[in-house]
Amino acid sequence: MAGLISIFASILFSNPQKQKLNLEEKFFFNVVGYPDIKKLLSKSIVSKEPIHILLTGPPSSSKTVFLLEMLDSLEDTYYVDAVGASGPGLMQHLFRNDTKYLLIDEIDKMKKSDQAVLLNVMETGILSETKLKNKTSQKKMKLWIFATSNDVERLSGPLRSRFMELHLDEYILEEFIEIARRLLKKQYQLDTAISEKIGYSVWNKMKSKDIRDVIKIAKLVKTSSDVDWLIEVQNKYRKKNSRMT
Rank of each mutant, 00 (worst) to 15 (best):
85 A>Y: 12
112 K>H: 07
99 T>S: 04
158 P>Y: 01
138 Q>R: 11
141 M>Y: 07
119 L>G: 03
82 A>Y: 11
105 D>F: 11
147 A>R: 08
150 N>Q: 01
156 S>V: 12
87 G>I: 13
84 G>E: 01
137 S>H: 11
122 M>G: 00
92 Q>T: 15
160 R>W: 06
70 M>V: 13
106 E>R: 03
108 D>P: 10
99 T>K: 00
164 M>P: 00
174 E>D: 14
128 S>H: 08
169 D>I: 10
124 T>I: 07
72 D>M: 01
98 D>P: 05
139 K>Q: 05
97 N>Q: 14
95 F>D: 02
150 N>E: 02
144 W>L: 04
126 I>K: 03
164 M>Y: 12
129 E>R: 12
108 D>T: 12
122 M>T: 09
88 P>R: 01
77 T>D: 01
153 E>P: 06
94 L>D: 09
121 V>S: 00
131 K>N: 11
156 S>K: 12
115 Q>A: 01
147 A>Y: 06
151 D>C: 00
120 N>C: 05
67 L>Q: 06
90 L>C: 07
83 V>R: 02
160 R>C: 08
140 K>F: 09
88 P>M: 00
102 L>V: 14
107 I>P: 05
121 V>Q: 00
98 D>N: 15
148 T>W: 06
144 W>R: 13
103 L>V: 14
158 P>H: 01
79 Y>L: 14
161 S>W: 03
74 L>I: 13
169 D>E: 10
107 I>H: 02
108 D>Y: 10
158 P>C: 00
70 M>G: 10
116 A>P: 06
157 G>A: 12
114 D>A: 08
131 K>P: 00
163 F>L: 03
71 L>Q: 13
70 M>P: 09
153 E>G: 11
79 Y>A: 06
69 E>Y: 02
141 M>P: 07
163 F>T: 15
89 G>W: 05
135 K>T: 15
132 L>I: 15
130 T>P: 04
115 Q>Y: 02
154 R>L: 10
154 R>G: 01
100 K>Y: 10
133 K>L: 09
